[in-house]
């Protein structure tokens, strides 16, 4: 821990702030006016500023009708430029498909037609319970405002429960409820609601890894609340924060890598 603190002054500040808040108890009780700062912290701690990020995602999807399906996806991220690339490696039926995001543009590459088709961050990711927006940089502060906040306990963790309302209609879900740790501001649980207030999806994030100065969820469980028993577990491995070539975030690279 001390090694890490020496390497990360920003994190030291956050941790000291969190420790002070914990020791002061009610003196630092939060209210809705603290919402923007908390959302910024959530984004900051999960955003790879100055670093690139790569990992391999394994998605295990359970569907009462379709059974169990496994997908393996190579992920590259450059959060500073709002870029990501997702390349599907398994199953073979989907091998070669890819999602390339460059700022406000998201393309889906179909190796059959060799076409880059525009798609939306709201769309389902490759038939799983994940959405394309789940794989970009965290942007809570930009997308949501806090309408209510409460202190609570989730398992053995002290958390804030944040009720969020979308600032614009570009987001996947118009309202969310987020359980975020009080010390590091890491989301542990997220409930996504529709416009009518129906619970659509519950996300559980039981594990994180620290990569550089940033925390990344290494285990994510997505429960489809509309279809009982339909869920997806995403596991991240092969995590790297090594610099990536600029050419990776190009259509040319997607075409070269895919079949």
């Amino acid at each position: 821990m001390m090694n890490y603190l020496r390497r990360s002054p920003a994190m030291t500040g956050i941790l000291l702030l969190a420790l002070t808040a914990i020791s002061s108890g009610a003196a630092f009780a939060v209210d809705v006016s603290d919402g923007p700062q908390i959302l910024e912290r959530i984004d900051e701690i999960r955003r790879f500023s100055g670093d690139d990020f790569a990992s391999v995602l394994t998605l295990i999807s359970e569907d009462p009708d379709e059974g169990v399906e496994k997908q393996v996806v190579q992920q590259f991220r450059r959060d500073d430029d709002e870029m990501f690339l997702m390349l599907i490696q398994e199953p073979t039926t989907m091998l070669g498909q890819g999602y390339l995001r460059v700022e406000d543009n998201l393309w889906f590459y179909d190796p059959e037609s060799r076409n880059f088709n525009r798609t939306s961050m709201k769309e389902q990711f490759s038939g799983s319970d994940a959405r394309n927006s789940d794989f970009g940089a965290s942007s809570y502060a930009e997308d949501y405002e806090v309408t209510a906040i409460a202190e609570a306990q989730l398992g053995r963790y002290d958390v804030y429960i944040l009720d969020l309302k979308a600032r614009h209609n570009e987001v996947t879900y118009p309202t969310e409820r987020v359980w975020v740790t009080r010390d590091l501001y890491l989301p542990l649980k997220v409930e996504d609601y529709s416009e009518t207030g129906r619970l659509m999806r519950t996300t559980l994030i039981p594990n994180y890894a620290r990569a550089g100065d940033t925390y990344v969820a290494t285990s994510i469980i997505l429960n489809d609340e509309l279809i009982p028993g339909k869920r997806t577990r995403i596991t991240l491995t092969d995590i790297s924060v090594a610099p990536l070539s600029d050419s990776i975030f190009t259509k040319s690279y997607v075409e070269r890598v895919n079949r």
Partner: peptide, 9 residues
Amino acid sequence: IIEDVEDAE
């Protein structure tokens, strides 16, 4: 909940 940075690498 959090792996050490060495573990992650």
